[in-house]
Nucleic acid binder design. Sequence first.
DNA 1: TAGATTGTTAATCGATTAACAATC
DNA 2: TAGATTGTTAATCGATTAACAATC
Lengths: 214, 214
Amino acid sequence: MIALTTRIPKPTLERLPLYHRAVESYLAKDQEAISSQELGREIGVDDYQVRKDLSWLGAGGRPGYGYEARHLLERFEEVLGLKRDHTAVVIGAGHLGTALSHYSGFRRYGLRILALFDRDPNKVGKQLGDIPILDIGELGSIIKEQHVPLAIITVPAPEAQRVVNLAVEAGIKAIWNFAPASIQVPPEIIVRNEDLAVGLATLSHYIVYGRPSD
Amino acid sequence: MIALTTRIPKPTLERLPLYHRAVESYLAKDQEAISSQELGREIGVDDYQVRKDLSWLGAGGRPGYGYEARHLLERFEEVLGLKRDHTAVVIGAGHLGTALSHYSGFRRYGLRILALFDRDPNKVGKQLGDIPILDIGELGSIIKEQHVPLAIITVPAPEAQRVVNLAVEAGIKAIWNFAPASIQVPPEIIVRNEDLAVGLATLSHYIVYGRPSD
DNA sequence: TAGATTGTTAATCGATTAACAATC
DNA sequence: TAGATTGTTAATCGATTAACAATC
């Protein structure tokens, strides 16, 4: 395992999953080499951007040849932590929570949803495929006992802070927040907000006023 | 209606919905003024960042007083295009598509989902609340006749480009893509990718390697 | 008036873009 | 060798951070 020498810039980090996917589809077509230009075309960035991004990983391209696809894939999976399996809990068994629990893409990225949590007695006790719906009261003990690093928040906005607090107290490492609410956590906790209002509002702005380049 | 004199930077634009929500909750508490410091604390940015962001809107704060919450709200809604109603179609009536169609937040932001589209005959013809599920074959004519500006894509990745092409041909203006796939569109079309793989992969990286600041 | 807080200018930081020598 | 393409350095761009004079 090659160590990461330097911190990878956030914009680069967020492009890595896109490169990853592009390389996967290249491999599926039995192509073993890929150039920065080809890779860039796939995800809509320029070739020098690709080379700069890949340079953070020590990707090991060969001048005149390109990057070896299989090696590149290895490197992405290592850097993105996809080689290890992670577990997660989903808090909130509403439409979004159940939709995410069904999402097959997670398995593919090594994420296993252990359980859904809700406080509605009509939902608690049921199963969603092989994922049980448990009472929110059991959240803390499950997180602690199974050392679950990630909580996915899909409760209504007014509940969000409360359930986040429960997860944090139980020792969660990261929060993936789908509730339209700003949540406060201690600095060591990693938070990613997936706020639909942000997407909708910016799209709405562009629809009304046009895009920057117009 | 006050015109936008300058292009708003993208990072600023994406913070506006968060400010908007914070101001709403301030108003709900009957507070009429809010300072850059208070607003910043709500969403986790510094006061000078808030002032810089608001300066793009000509927000009209008063030194020694702060910003008038009601006026600020007006301004946000104008800039984010929330004062006008938009229509949208959802393409893909799977778990995610139905979850999004149920999402009440959209109504609140003036977005009305006209219809869900799918190619599965078992789904077509049904209703989701008051939203009909229509055959994908009708997509083009609905977009054209109703001048629908926004298509929300929730089909499986391999289908994404195909349905996006249909929407583009019918004259769609913007695409909100939830499929884990890079899609190609003409330059005048606005695209926002809401790629769960990006979120998951970056979280996974931080869980394994720690955050930048550690 | 005194205190609080804005709006804006300047300094810093970090990412993107460009260019090219190195090299497979 | 000649051609293609990398890795890296330098230049540019844009956003964040800081500071402070203006002003309610």
